[in-house]
């Protein structure tokens, strides 16, 4: 009766691993910078889920994993803001946002 699915660590780890692998696939597969940013957010979500799941099942006596997940969220917000600013600059300059065609850094 107590053997619920949501009481198993492996389910959460599987979801987190799936988010990581599909995020890596997205980084390879997408050609535009925004698509790559979306894939990056998937990877960060997977990392956060991993930390919280391990905190709940392995290290039950403290809340360090949750705190680190909160820190990851803050970093993800800052990273997304800067990355989107740079993407919009690239679009203004080159009129496209395809990663493979950006071959020069300055002017």
């Amino acid at each position: 009766m107590t053997d619920f699915f949501y009481n198993h660590l492996h389910v959460y780890l599987f979801v987190a691993l799936f988010l990581l692998v599909s995020g890596i696939l997205g980084l390879v597969y997408r050609r535009t910078l925004i698509g790559m940013l979306v894939a990056m957010e998937l990877i960060m979500n997977g990392a956060g889920l991993n930390l919280v799941a391990l905190n709940r099942f392995i290290a039950v006596e403290n809340a360090t994993g949750m705190a680190f997940t909160l820190i990851i969220m803050g970093i993800a917000a800052a990273e997304a803001a800067i990355a989107l600013g740079i993407i919009i600059l690239i679009f203004r300059k080159y009129r496209h946002v395809e990663g493979a065609e950006l071959q020069e850094m300055k002017d």
């Binding site: 198993h8 660590l9 492996h10 780890l13 709940r56 039950v60």
Partner: peptide, 11 residues
């Protein structure tokens, strides 16, 4: 990670 019973969590 071995299959263990979920411990109680009170955080």
């Amino acid at each position: 990670f071995p299959r263990t019973k979920a411990p109680a969590f009170t955080v």
